[in-house]
Design a protein around this nucleic acid. Structure first.
Length: 415
RNA sequence: CGGGGCGUGGCGUAACGGCUAACGCACUUGGUUUGGGACCAAGGGACUCCGAGUUCGAAUCUCGGCGCCCCGACCA
């Protein structure tokens, strides 16, 4: 992508209302634009990051057998009345001109359960799991912290269906591993803790995935020995001790919930009269689990954790582009060479943002730091004198040089 | 939803109740620049959030509404 054509603009100043780091950097860098409180447009750069995060989630959900579907965001009132959740205050409701009411989806048990019921009648159809990545709507009383808590946001929700408890438990554990693979790939695994939370009516615990950050809104209690944590709401029930090893020296930390998995058991299958026939031809109620994770919140969390004074530092797998190619000066020979490099990198399927703008070196370097692409290539009159280009990783303060001829190979090794 | 703060070109700010609402960034045109947010010159862009009121006169004072941010409550 040529930067001169990229829609969106970097800015030096930030809207005075934005105090959260993720909002400041994402707006300054031209990744997102705020439409209203808790509602954002993803500009080309931001959309690329979001898509990459979503694709990582897809891959890991597919790897544990999840099948992607897309459910409606506009929901039938009657199904929500069936489960008694129509009047929960997070539900956004819309009314037509003729006074017909619909709900906007903030979770999808009320859609996926009737759906599953329609297609799965025999034990042979189980187990299965369905997921979607979709825009969710929640009537948050107070949207805050940039894209961390919005009223409209991207969410992956997976629902699993099982004929017995062992099978549900097995899948539940697999999902934990899948979640940590995702956290690893988006670069926040070290700071993310499996966190014990209240299990509701049907199981002892549910689990949250909490990522340490001062921007977080939850307090968790960490056991260093087990690398797990306990949610604030059940810490007293556990008498301030680790549920795994009994350790009483737990550390209190601020964190943000980046994922949540929950055994729903028969809470929804029962409500919808969902039954299957087992091997003996006997009717049984299937067990359910649900597994949530918000790509947009993940994106905001990464920004909160991975930045310096200059701007964002994207982990390789989710950076908007793999390489930021910067051409300095207006010397025709240099520009021609830069174009050549741009084309040869693209030919190798390397994603390049090419700063071809007629801006001063300072502006280009500042923008590059702000946007945070992992690998920066600079070509200028100075580097051309040695038939070379300068290479710098966003994370490092050192620069190195490589010959024009060897550049593509060099880049391939680094991305 | 309770408490606090703030609404002035796209963004950041200024302006005593009194001249044509000022400045910086960004934008347009021309020129000089080009290794860490360059410079010169000439431009364009505002019903001062909305609505009432007070006043000879309101960006400025009063009331109401709306919006945004922060703290709290809430967050399957």
């Amino acid at each position: 992508m040529k930067q001169s054509k990229l829609f969106g603009k970097t800015t030096k100043e930030i809207p005075k209302d934005e105090t959260s780091k993720n909002a400041q950097y994402l707006i300054r860098g031209g990744f997102v634009d705020k439409s209203m409180a808790g509602v954002y447009t993803y500009l080309p750069l931001g959309k690329r990051v979001l898509t990459k995060i979503e694709n990582i989630i897809r891959e890991e959900m597919d790897a544990i057998g999840g099948q992607e579907i897309l459910m409606p965001a506009l929901m039938k009132k009657e199904d929500w009345q069936t489960t008694g959740r129509w009047d929960i205050d997070v539900m956004m409701k819309v009314k037509t001109f003729f006074d017909k009411e619909y709900g906007l989806g903030w979770t999808h048990e009320e859609v996926v359960t009737p759906l599953a019921k329609k297609y799965a009648r025999s034990y042979k159809d189980f187990p299965f799991s369905l997921y979607q990545i979709q825009t969710k709507f929640r009537s948050e009383k107070r949207a805050k912290s940039g894209i961390l808590r919005g009223r409209e946001f991207s969410m992956k929700d997976l629902y699993s269906f099982h004929t017995n408890e062992e099978d549900l438990d097995k899948f539940y554990d697999q999902s934990k591993n899948a979640y940590f693979k995702i956290f690893d790939r988006v670069g926040i695994k070290e700071k993310t803790y499996l966190t014990f939370a209240s299990g509701g009516d049907f199981s002892k615990y549910s689990h949250e995935f909490q990522t340490l950050t001062s921007a977080g809104e939850d307090l968790i209690y960490i056991c260093d020995k087990c690398h797990i944590a306990v949610n604030q709401e059940i810490i007293e029930d556990l008498e301030n001790s680790c549920p795994e090893c009994g350790n009483k020296k737990l550390k209190e930390e601020k964190a943000i919930e980046t994922g949540n998995i929950f055994k729903l058991k028969t809470r929804f299958t029962e409500a919808f009269g969902f039954k299957f026939l087992d091997k003996n031809g006997k009717e049984n109620i299937p067990l359910m689990g649900c597994y949530g994770m918000g790509p947009s919140r993940l994106m905001g969390t990464v920004v909160e954790l991975s930045n310096d004074e200059g701007g964002i530092i994207w982990p390789k797998e989710i950076a908007p582009y793999q390489v930021h190619l910067i051409c300095l000066g207006d010397d025709e020979v240099v520009i021609k060479e830069a174009e050549k490099i741009y084309e040869s990198l693209q030919k190798e399927k390397i994603e390049v943002l090419y700063d071809d703008r007629n801006e001063s070196a300072g502006v280009k370097f500042k923008d590059s730091d702000l946007i945070g692409i992992p690998l920066r290539i600079v070509i200028s009159k100075r580097t051309m004198e040695n038939n070379s280009v300068e290479i710098k990783e966003r994370l490092s303060s050192d620069t190195e040089f490589t010959s024009l001829d060897g550049l593509v190979g060099f880049v391939k090794d680094r991305i």
